[in-house]
């Protein structure tokens, strides 16, 4: 009978060790490669931040000049608005690169919100004085994922407003405020409309809490 002979078993400890070392090496290489690639983009990010800072300074000065002008209807408003949109885009890119809750991004957003509040004031004045019939929408949202449904609806509201704005860029003016980056002027707006949850819309100076579909917003804009 050969059957009594059993196989001599062993645990290949050496191979487990080699496999562990190689795996750790691969992880380490992955981290290094990611870092190296990211560093190449840091310069871009720093440049974006500088552009935003310079723009904010200039924009603030320009706003002061505009607001003190007697003939508000004669200013080339479109150019001012496009500049604001341009900075908004740079900020959005920074959000993608550094994350929505990154302290540097939040700092820039704080200033951006402050400027937007100024733009809102200006928009209202021009709209009234020059009879432009613009529809001005303020959109207060949260980027805080811990807020669950409010975060999800804020995101959804953002998409809705994007498509609304793209459908009529000439007459619809939307200003979006991240509630987590509340600047003094933003805070006073939040207090003015008693905003306690998000998303929150202010459409032509009237407050609307909760998510609003594009259809609902259109109805409000048409005064129905």
């Amino acid at each position: 009978m050969v059957i009594e002979e059993k196989v001599k078993r062993k645990v290949s400890i050496k191979f487990y060790l080699i496999a562990t070392i190689l795996t750790l090496f691969l992880f380490f290489a992955g981290i290094q490669i990611g870092d190296q690639l990211a560093k190449r983009r840091v310069a871009d990010i720093e440049l974006s931040q500088k552009v935003i800072s310079i723009f904010f300074e200039l924009f603030n000065k320009r706003m002061d000049i505009i607001l003190n002008q007697e003939e508000l209807c004669n200013i080339t408003w479109d150019e001012v608005w496009q500049e604001k949109v341009f900075v908004g885009d740079i900020l959005a890119k920074l959000e993608i690169k550094l994350g929505k809750t990154n302290p540097d991004v939040m700092k820039q957003k704080f200033t951006y919100n402050e400027i937007q509040a100024g733009v809102y004031e200006l928009l209202n004045r021009i709209n009234k004085k020059c009879n432009y019939n613009w529809s001005i929408i303020l959109f207060f949202y949260t980027n805080d994922k811990n807020m669950g449904e409010q975060f999800k609806l804020s995101e959804l509201q953002g998409y809705t407003l994007d498509s609304l704005y793209n459908s009529d860029k000439d007459t619809i003016k939307i200003l979006a405020f991240d509630a987590s980056a509340s600047s003094p002027k933003t805070k006073s707006l939040i207090e003015k409309y008693s905003i306690i949850s998000f998303p929150y819309l202010v459409i032509n100076n009237n407050g609307y809490g909760g998510f609003r579909s594009r259809y609902e917003i259109n109805q409000i804009l048409q005064g129905k």
């Binding site: 490669i33 990211a38 993608i96 959804l156 994007d162 498509s163 259809y215």
Partner: peptide, 23 residues
């Protein structure tokens, strides 16, 4: 879509790049 969003096929290169270099 129910809320009025229109699908767009815009690809954000920056977003793609930063996604690609994640560990």
């Amino acid at each position: 879509i129910m809320a009025g969003w229109v699908p767009s096929f815009y690809i954000n290169i920056d977003s793609l790049f930063f996604f690609a270099i994640e560990l």
